[in-house]
Design a protein around this nucleic acid. Structure first.
Length: 501
DNA sequence: TTCCGACAGTGGGGTCGCAAT
DNA sequence: ATTGCGACCCCACTATCGGAA
């Protein structure tokens, strides 16, 4: 496959303009029937959403072929067959088919296929750069391609439209009730004041619910529920379907969050919402939907309307109990009050929004800014893992432990690789090799002496770690060379935080 | 010339269903 | 019955490029 050579060239350059040129050239060379699978491969994806093949299945590959014979169409056919396999004996059958595909691939093609199956091609180009490449190859405006992608939620479809139908075909792509579109995302800020600085005043402050994002489409009696990644989870959320079916609207597209509540109406931990949302069959706990935006109502698209107009229409279309808590504010003090109230109600935080902004499909703009409280602890590094990719050769992923005064030892609470600059990576590689007691190929165990200040969002119950608790979203703030391990925070402190939330 | 938005990469914890052991 | 795997839910943060200011 000639796409493999393109991918290698894309990997080899750091220039985004060059990457786009290379990808555009490859797109132009695709035959009409190859655009769907080929554009996916160039973006580092497969046409098929699920294949049942992951890293473990790919570990043992047969020897590569000497001569390249694979075509886009042949690869797509093979993968389609693999993804159709199911039932007893499926794992063996899948391995057989994967083996046959890999035996027909050259060494370069094998590497490329592993990246595609694993979803980690790491060529420095994904759907984002493909948008630019599609625009260039189809000789159409890039803004048109981007808008089509976000409204259609599918890169392959947009590639076909741009390369075979040009600007006219792209312009026809619009919000369609029943087809998910990329949800608008929020930036984060460290404080409500910072958030307000980004959005400006006046602003509105929405309660941030710790559940799962839902986009609900209704057309007549047909209701569909989609996740943030545009997966269809309609069969798993009958209670949400029922709630939306009970609305007076005929055609509606809603954006919101679904979460589990206790008898008093307070939020349950995220894990309970996630468990419920992943469960098929009769629900035991019920998820409650809360909506904060309205994208379409009875034939009218509202994406370009200002936030206050969308909210006004939402408040008329949906009963008040199904609306996310919202406070209009004109001062930082009022915003701070709304933040405190959200936390007092047991919620995750707030999202500060500009009331004038449009619904910026698929964007993480300054119009929505989330604020969550942050905890910190001084923990001890117990071990470090060697990094991959650009972190190869550096010790990267830290194993974190809290002090256990009972035993004099340490209790592992999780890992983190976040918050590290290149300079810190260099420093810690040297430092932990000095402290090493066991230098494995993957994990380097160290004497528990180095204290590190860790930020995190909360403590959650853990079925994996020995203390029964783990940190959520842990990241490094700084190393504490002014503290010894004997002064680190204890497991009791961590459990106390868990009990409070 | 400097600033900043968008993108890609580097991985984290948890849950479920399903097939194999 | 338990275990391993794949697929998804939540996600933070840094480096880099290249256009905007």
């Amino acid at each position: 496959m000639d796409l493999v050579a393109t991918s290698a060239a894309v990997s080899a350059t750091s220039s985004r303009k060059t990457k786009v040129e290379l990808l555009a050239d490859a797109l132009r060379r695709l035959g009409p029937e190859e655009i769907v699978a080929g554009s996916a491969y160039l973006a580092g994806e497969l046409r098929q959403r699920q294949t049942g093949v992951g890293w473990a299945t790919l570990r043992q590959a047969p020897p590569p072929a000497g001569e390249p014979t694979l075509t886009v169409a042949a690869v797509d056919r093979a993968i389609e067959e693999i993804s159709q396999v199911g039932g007893a004996g499926s794992q063996g059958r899948r391995r057989e088919l994967v083996g046959a595909l890999f035996a027909a691939a050259t060494a370069d093609e094998q590497r490329h296929l592993v990246g595609l199956f694993g979803g980690e091609l790491r060529q420095g180009a994904q759907a984002g750069l493909l948008v630019d490449a599609i625009a260039r190859a189809g000789e159409v405006p890039v803004t048109l391609v981007r808008r089509a992608l976000l409204l259609a939620g599918d890169l392959k479809e947009v590639a076909v439209a741009a390369l075979t139908g040009g600007a006219a075909a792209l312009a026809e792509v619009a919000l369609r009730v029943g087809r998910p579109l990329a949800p608008m995302l929020a930036q984060s800020a460290a404080s409500v004041d910072d958030a307000l600085a980004a959005t400006g005043v006046p602003a509105v402050v929405d309660v941030k619910l710790d559940g799962i994002r839902i986009q609900v489409h209704r057309s007549g009696d047909e209701v569909a529920v989609f996740t943030r990644s545009l997966d269809d989870i309609t069969p798993r959320l009958p209670e949400v379907v029922a709630a939306v079916r009970a609305l007076p609207a005929r055609e509606i597209v809603l954006d919101g969050e679904a979460m589990a509540l206790d008898a008093a109406g307070r939020p349950r931990p995220f894990q309970e919402t996630a468990s419920r949302a992943a469960t098929r069959g009769a629900p035991v706990t019920v998820l409650t939907p809360y909506f904060f935006d309205l994208l379409h109502l009875d034939g009218a698209d509202l994406l370009d309307a200002p936030g206050r107009e969308r909210w006004g229409a939402l408040a008329e279309a949906v009963p008040a109990p199904l609306l996310v808590g919202r406070t209009a504010v004109t001062t930082p003090a009022e915003a701070a009050e709304a933040f405190a109230a959200a936390l007092a109600a047991g919620q995750e935080g707030v999202v500060v929004k500009s009331p004038e902004s449009a619904y910026d499909v698929g964007r993480r703009g300054a119009a929505w800014v989330k604020v969550k409280p942050r905890h910190t602890l001084d923990l001890v590094v117990l071990a470090v893992e060697w990094g991959h990719g650009r972190r190869k050769g550096w010790l990267s992923n830290l194993h974190l432990g809290a002090r256990d005064p009972q035993t004099g030892g340490f209790v592992m609470l999780g890992k983190t690789f976040k918050g590290l600059t290149d300079e810190l990576l260099r420093w810690q590689t040297e430092r932990f090799l000095e402290l090493a007691v066991d230098k494995g190929d993957w994990v380097v165990t160290v004497r528990p002496e180095q204290v590190v200040e860790i930020a995190f969002d909360g403590v959650q119950a853990s079925p994996r770690y020995p203390g029964g608790v783990a940190l959520r979203f842990a990241r490094v703030l700084r190393y504490r060379d002014d503290k010894t391990a004997a002064e680190a925070d204890t497991i009791e402190t961590v459990k106390a935080i868990h009990a409070k939330t």
